[in-house]
Design a protein around this nucleic acid. Sequence first.
DNA 1: TTAGTATTCGGAGCGCTGCTCCGTTTTGTC
DNA 2: GACAAAACGGAGCAGCGCTCCGAATACTAA
Lengths: 198, 198
Amino acid sequence: MTADSPAGKPPSRGKRADARRNRETVLAAAAEVFVTSGVDAPIRQIAARAGVGMATIYRHFPTRADLITAVYRHQIEACAEAGPNLLASADSPFEALRQWIDLFVDFLVTKHGLADALQSDDDRFAALHDYFLDRLLPVCAELLDAAVEAGDIGPGTQPYELMRGIGNLCIGRDDDPRYDPRRLIALLLQGLRRPHAS
Amino acid sequence: MTADSPAGKPPSRGKRADARRNRETVLAAAAEVFVTSGVDAPIRQIAARAGVGMATIYRHFPTRADLITAVYRHQIEACAEAGPNLLASADSPFEALRQWIDLFVDFLVTKHGLADALQSDDDRFAALHDYFLDRLLPVCAELLDAAVEAGDIGPGTQPYELMRGIGNLCIGRDDDPRYDPRRLIALLLQGLRRPHAS
DNA sequence: TTAGTATTCGGAGCGCTGCTCCGTTTTGTC
DNA sequence: GACAAAACGGAGCAGCGCTCCGAATACTAA
């Protein structure tokens, strides 16, 4: 798999100029199409928008997950980096956790269908799943550990389970006033909280 | 056998014998296929299993949701009817709510892909969504109200939001030991619970 | 029983998707 | 300018949902 360096973007140094250009064109087109048609949009549509053949997209992004992660990489990184910062700036580890989850939820609900794709058991999305986990799970674990250590919450909660649960709660139409995942997530956090009774 | 109830289809009284027979055959085949391939299984596959043409399935069950609800109708009804019973038998309304949710979760996680379909915003599943809501939402509301009245939980939780959240939490592969929706739902209920400040 | 008719059946067929294959074009190099 | 190597593009195949319509079947009336 793309021996791309970790957080970096050596945008294909040895690649040909047209290849580099096309990669960016496709990324831009995909970003636009994702907004209007969701991350499930037909590859043909993205190719048409980019004025490019389908094979070109598959060449640069072998799976749909690769394309999605490339489009949202910056925002995922920002979310990952926000963890330690919040831990330093918030009133308590629990408050940091709450704010970080808020960021994560904001990210998910504004990307049409992203949460759905994230939790899908479709093999095509496995890489997406993995990327999110690789990048964000350690951050979540750190926040969780800090909150446990501070006595804000009880021990035993697995970061993987929490993150996946939050992701799951964000699934679905985002324009239904009867359902706001944030309210349920707040409830979840409330349940996590330790009574602080001495 | 229930001369069949409100939301039910009279088992096709005026229909021709072969039509009635085929309806049952399809139902049985669909039930089998759903177990092995999930509720998203290709219609062709169900038709083949039933030894029937595709049009026959579409004639009896115009949308996939109709087929799914027909297959699981009994279990959904059982879940709906369990609500009042639990309320009468459990130690507290809160405990009744907890047990009822347990039933609901059991139902969802044992039907491969059902939770996914339930929360999908695909129009094809709208009827499924509606059926679940029509049948189970009042039950959930009753349990919730009782728990509020008993002071077990705080007011303000919307039954729709709770049910959908629970459904969402049940989405995904059901064989992942790292993720058990029940743990998160327990947390959610914990967050719902009022401190019993009496 | 038989003939007639309404009902039901079955699968070919259309449109849309994901993904690949391969002849053509572009790019970088000498 | 010539020539590989790299990249391109879209035709093409397979799988799916859903429909359409000639064929087969079950009821009914004589």
